[in-house]
Amino acid sequence: MSSDVRFTDFKSDKQPTWCPGCGDFGTMNGMMKGLAETGNDPDNTFVVAGIGCSGKIGTYMHSYALHGVHGRALPVGTGVKMARPDLEVMVAGGDGDGYSIGAGHFVHAVRRNVDMTYVVMDNRIYGLTKGQASPTSRSDFETSTTPEGPKQPPVNPLALALASGASFIAQSFSSDALRHQEIIEEAIEHDGFGFVNVFSPCVTFNDVDTYDYFRDSLVDLQEEGHDPNDYEAAKEVILDGDKEYQGVMYQDENSVPYHEQHGVTEDMSDIPEGAPEDAMDLVREFY
């Protein structure tokens, strides 16, 4: 790990095809800066991306990376981290990837508390397929597949994480670059599953949850004096449906990450050139 890593080292030479003004630019910048600031370099970083606009991030960043199938980014990251605890693992996805097709994995990744960072670019819309409702769309949000709105309450991903036993829950806004980067860094440095839901506006298909909307409505928890170690206080802000918050909502000070809990500490890529020396003992067990 070299000390002179700059955030641009995490940038590939591929130009993003996101729409001009897309929130994902800011989200990605914060991720790259956060990775560099916390002492990582591209050769020891593994980025996993799902499907959707957010999924393209693996192409625009430079590191070891896998761009997988829709909704399964968290299991991939889990496997990477278990096999190689020495790596920095960052998983990125969108609200569809994480809270719809991958919702089952989200719950269990949270429970497992693997020491990795999960960044969800939440734009409350399906952008890549040109504007259908997402699990975080408002119930009256009119789209091509929900002309009168989904008529269902949006998923509250923070509450879902809390109910699943999360050890770190945060929310940021891609446009508030400094705060977003700080929150990402805290998630990276957290001993366990660092979950950040990022408001990452879609300028093309979502005219409700816009930059202006978030700028006007966001309340910064740290400015409010919120104590992230206070579970009850966290519960209150997470379940508060009237306000949009940014900041670290909850952090379990006593979080024990999966690898410590299960003693998974070895570099699993390193194996002998033949069967293990004592392998005949495995056979003798069957006497």
Partner: peptide, 24 residues
């Protein structure tokens, strides 16, 4: 090494894929 019980087979193969990409 390590054995992990996944939440479903979708997850199991993706975890195994992740570990393989990491070199295991």
């Amino acid at each position: 090494g390590h054995v992990v019980q996944a939440e479903d087979e979708l997850s199991a193969i993706n975890m195994a894929l992740g570990a393989a990409r990491a070199g295991a």
